[in-house]
Design a protein around this nucleic acid. Structure first.
Lengths: 224, 224
DNA sequence: CCGTCTACATGAAATTTACACAAAAATCGG
DNA sequence: CCGATTTTTGTGTAAATTTCATGTAGACGG
């Protein structure tokens, strides 16, 4: 089913949360500090994060802020867990981008239902990892791309590049931004690599290739 | 925070919605009919629209269709509100381009959370710093300019120049200042470059081109 | 076969050049 | 002082020219 990461320093609470969520049909992975959590996050991204604010090594708010700052973790639903129940903290947490908020002590049923509600919400708000723009259809599960139901063989980078363009369809993406998203943050100097892949993409997509437009001095857009 | 427009003919529901959203930290502006709404929309564009389907003067679906047809309102998130709860209507609403759908009677908490989710989603999908001056609309995301919803093909410098003028509309910008902002600090001697681009801009903008006025011995202004 | 690089071609965009034009400012005859 | 005329100065426009981002082909390493 869905994977949930718990970040909570109190061992007892951690256990209660783990068991409760496990029983309601989720995979759970719990961490006692921010460091372990981050290490695991780099390997595998969960469907939801239950985040305690008070942690031994790092403030929960800080972790949340970082999660929201990075493109690949921005969309993961986060429930903040805290002992503080003042309205101020609630506002602050939601401002940073928590999706929900629960205060200790909390009932197990409340926890479960909030988790379930949030997962459901995030599922139908954009769980379809498949993308469609015009006649181009990208199936994340099968790692396949179709143009008018005709499968197209794309290499890894081509696929990643296309996905980058499709998930930002209509938006003029800056070259640097594309490089950052598809190749990784570190990239220096000039290179025709991106153009290269754009070219092959256009070719392989056939008629739909013309949907990739170059915006001079900026980068590329995908639009119908 | 964010501005929400409500279009709803039932006074009681309107009030409930207004208060609920106001309490959750939004600016709210509500309208009893489509006409008033449109008038206000021309002046100021909201961050989200809560749109009832059944209205005295115009069908909500029609309004939505028009919103999606116009470049500068296309990206405003819309939640459809309706008493009809049949699956058919739901599909129809989402087909036209509603971002979410809520059926009466609804819980206040549900409303608030849907609004919040949608606003956040639209926020991080692109903080569109779009500009509008008179009939000219500049969409930063798409790197596109529209005059009365008609797209205009501008080159990079033309675009930058127009943006410079638009973001200082009504202010007479000194030639040197424009050069500095659009071309960069280093620029020496006389040159017809700026005039050049002003000319092509005026041409390409068509009727709206006359909004760019020259201020002798100073520079240029953009004003309605 | 895939991804990246080098090197070069190409063409759109930016700039320069050259000149026409318009609006002030200066000049001048009355 | 006044109005007309010339001069000066700043801006508009077209065409020529240069620049530079992108397109493309082929080579090289994994």
């Amino acid at each position: 089913m869905s994977l949930i990461y718990i970040v909570e320093d109190d061992e007892n609470i951690r256990e209660i949360e783990s068991i409760a969520l496990n029983n309601s049909g989720h995979d759970v992975c719990s961490f006692g500090c921010g460091k372990d959590f981050k290490k695991e996050l780099a390997k595998r991204r969960p469907d939801l994060i239950l985040l305690d604010i008070m942690l031994p090594d790092e403030d929960g708010m800080e972790i949340l802020k970082k999660l929201r700052a990075s493109a690949d973790t921005r969309r993961i639903p986060v429930i903040l867990v805290t002992a503080k129940s003042t309205e101020l903290d609630k506002v602050k947490g939601l401002d940073i981008g928590a999706d929900d908020y629960i205060t200790k002590p909390f009932g197990v049923m409340e926890l479960i239902s909030r988790v379930r509600a949030l997962i459901r919400r995030s599922m139908d708000s954009g769980a379809s990892k498949s993308l469609r723009v015009g006649s181009i259809f990208l199936d994340s599960d099968r790692h396949m791309v179709y143009v008018d139901d005709e499968p197209k063989e794309l290499t890894f980078k081509e696929y990643e590049l296309l996905r980058c363009l499709m998930s930002n369809s209509g938006v003029a993406m800056h070259r640097d931004r594309i490089m950052e998203l598809v190749w990784g943050t570190d990239f220096e100097g000039e290179s025709r690599t991106l153009d290269m892949h754009i070219k092959t993409l256009r070719q392989k997509l056939g008629t739909a290739g013309s949907m990739i437009k170059t915006v001079r001095n900026v980068g590329y857009v995908l639009e119908e």
